[in-house]
Computed example of a mutant assay.
Amino acid sequence: MMRIGLFLLTNLAVLVIAGIMMSVLGVGNYKEGGSLNLVNLLIFCGIFGMTGSLVSLFMSKMMAKMSTGTQLIEQPQNQTEAWLLSTVEELSQKAGIKMPDVGIFPSHESNAFATGWNKNDALVSVSTGLLERMSPEEVRAVLAHEIGHVANGDMVTLALIQGVVNTFVMFVTRVVVYAIDQFTADEEGEGGLGWIAEMVLTIVLDILFGILASGIVAWFSRRREFKADEAGATLADRQAMISALQRLKSEYEDASGLQGSMTALGISGSKMSAFFASHPPLDDRIAALQGR
């Protein structure tokens, strides 16, 4: 129920902001007299595509905390929480960024994530399962990996890439739908798809093209994971980073796949899942750290 509410809230914010921007820029209908105004269409798609991505970025901390049940550590209640705060502070200083908020979320899986709209207003959170099953050195390496994401500006980079991808998905979809509508009309311009069929086809193609285009975003995400692993090795310890990935591999090697949408350290299975995976196979990441 909470995820549905967050989804609706995000989309409402997108519609309001995009509507204001279109009004300010004076962007009109991209269909004029039965013809397609490609400039207006591109601006229309750019506004909605980038707005959706940027609104999600600005709301990312709130959404992550609510969806995972992350509890921020304001005042440490035990030795583990005190250690987490001091470790994140130390690693943040090494990385040259402002200390992120630090949290813990309930999950049996060994997991962690970083999010936030800029590197000086971020959140780093780890699961209870990770704290239970990894050694302090391995947890420190995972924290360094997440801080590497923050310091490298990965959240902003991927949000911008997603915005560009959204723009072109919307643009291509509407051009294709217009072409089909024109092809099915007679010489007098009568007939065509009709507004209901046009709307349904637009939604279907938006989804299909969006799924295909998500592979582009996933490719960039996988590249950023290697950089974050290297940051974990540099900020913490290379062998500890390798050990953390090996432990994660051992933990999940008998599982069919990882569950949950906030997984920060993942395993890819089939070629199809690997194409859409946001993280490279663990064997590849371990080999990269080992220089193989």
Rank of each mutant, 00 (worst) to 15 (best):
G215Y: 08
S53T: 04
F209C: 12
G192K: 01
W195D: 13
T87P: 00
A233V: 07
S125E: 07
E190N: 13
K119F: 10
E230H: 15
A64Q: 01
G96W: 06
L248W: 01
W219C: 02
K31I: 13
P76W: 00
E81G: 07
L15P: 13
K271N: 13
A287E: 14
A274Y: 15
G52S: 12
S125I: 10
F7L: 08
K65I: 15
I180K: 13
G291F: 08
S35Q: 09
I207Y: 14
R285K: 15
E89V: 02
Q93Y: 05
A218E: 00
E137I: 04
I17W: 00
P106Q: 12
G52F: 11
D284S: 13
S110P: 11
G191L: 04
M262R: 09
D237H: 13
W219P: 00
M99Y: 14
L91I: 08
G194R: 05
V200H: 07
G33A: 09
L8C: 02
E90H: 12
G269P: 07
N78W: 05
Q162W: 09
L143H: 00
R133G: 00
V176P: 04
L289T: 05
A264D: 14
E74Q: 12
L72Q: 10
A144R: 00
I203E: 03
N111M: 00
M62R: 05
A240H: 01
V177D: 12
S221M: 08
K119D: 05
G192Q: 10
G269E: 13
E89F: 00
Y178D: 11
S86H: 06
G116C: 06
S92Q: 08
T70I: 01
T10M: 11
V150P: 00
E253M: 09
M272H: 11
V124L: 12
V204Q: 15
V204P: 13
V176G: 10
V156Q: 03
G5N: 12
V175R: 10
D154K: 05
G215I: 05
E188L: 11
A95V: 00
D121A: 08
G19M: 04
F226D: 05
L8M: 03
P280Q: 06
M199R: 11
I267Q: 09
I43L: 15
V156F: 03
A228G: 01
